[in-house]
Amino acid sequence: MTDLPVADFLSALLGSGLLLAVPLLLAALGEAFAERAGLLNLGIEGMMLGGAFAGFAVALETGRIAAGVAAGAALGVALGSGFGLLTIWLRVDQVLTGLAITILGSGLTGFLYRDLYGGQNRPLPTTAARLDLPVLTDVPVVGRALFGQPLLVYLAWAAVPIAALVLGRTRFGLAVRAVGEAPFAADAAGIGVAQTRFAAILIGGAAAGLGGAFLAVVDVRTFTDNMTLGQGFLALALTMLGRWRPWRILAGALLFGMLRSLETGLPILGMDVRPEFVGMLPYLGLLAALVVLARRAAMPAALGVPYERGRR
């Protein structure tokens, strides 16, 4: 059976690729809401790191994965409301605010990790429960990878149609898109611009915190300094690549997760490549994809512009 490694390779690629895609998918879906509402959140990176650390700390103290995940999402909501207060209420520059949150997230998590846990590699004692779908897991090659994942993975997948439905077919989704495209018209039509944007950034913050918590608590099962490694920024790029549409964002996140899992997958095929070289490829692929798919993408017209009634 000389072709066995290929099956192993595909299975590993799919299995770890799906896990790697989840934090990106969650963060990018949340950012789609924020950007559709006119808010560019460069703080995602800091929110993800915060969610990762809060999730890790709570899961470690309580021994409960679910508590950690909830804590990550809650911290994301808190940071999101901070972003909202500064950019919507005080009309502070969004890029400035986002970068401030990212610096704070990186600094505070690194500080507390060292201070509380001595900077040691502390693995979580518990593993997230896997939801094995009977029969389906027995499908060769893809079975285990697709249908033997932690519960949160399925929830992340389920978030895609929900996000598409909410953005595309509900009154709230319409309001989000309206305040991002034409806030003055939306205001005149009786839509609360500030409230809608605030709701959108809370969704974005929760999703980013959840993504970070997933990374630390479910996937890696520990915390390390700056463990998000720019994934928050990557989520921004994926949001743009997917043109703020949930299904396209899912496609981008999956593709990117697979490309990143090549790092672990290629050695299975006996290929001797340096991880850094493989690590570079997804980003180059992303740039190429942006050129092909997102050039001259029509951004939400009011993206990055603070709204002030009566001041056009």
Binding site: L236, A237, L290, R295
Partner: peptide
């Protein structure tokens, strides 16, 4: 293409 995104990706 917005340089916020591309310069960030180039850093990675």
């Amino acid at each position: 293409l917005n340089e916020i995104i591309t310069t960030l990706v180039m850093t990675s």
